[in-house]
């Protein structure tokens, strides 16, 4: 495989998987918050904390991909 093609394929794979990881991060954060709420009986508080953390984690993925894209 030529070097240039390999690089294009690698970037394609990485950036194509970005959208899914953002959505999944938010759901994981939400699920974690809901589970901890049930465990400690503190109804909506931890859900919002978890949701916020999930959203931040998802967006940090985008920011990291942007930094990576600049390097190439």
């Amino acid at each position: 495989m030529k070097k240039e093609t390999g690089k294009t394929i690698r970037e394609l794979g990485y950036f194509a998987s970005l959208g899914m990881s953002v959505a999944l991060s938010i759901f994981i954060g939400l699920g974690l918050g809901l589970w901890l709420d049930k465990k400690f009986d503190t109804n909506p508080v931890l859900m919002f904390v978890g949701l916020l953390l999930g959203i931040v984690a998802g967006f940090s993925n985008i920011i990291r991909a942007g930094k990576k894209g600049k390097k190439y």
């Binding site: 998987s17 999944l24 991060s25 994981i28 954060g29 953390l53 998802g58």
Partner: peptide
């Protein structure tokens, strides 16, 4: 304390995104 949960969530998302794709 802010970064640790974020990174853990991001690494769990890797497993799930590989799985569900």
């Amino acid at each position: 304390p802010l970064f640790l949960p974020i990174e853990l969530i991001a690494h769990t998302a890797r497993v799930l995104s590989l799985t569900f794709r």
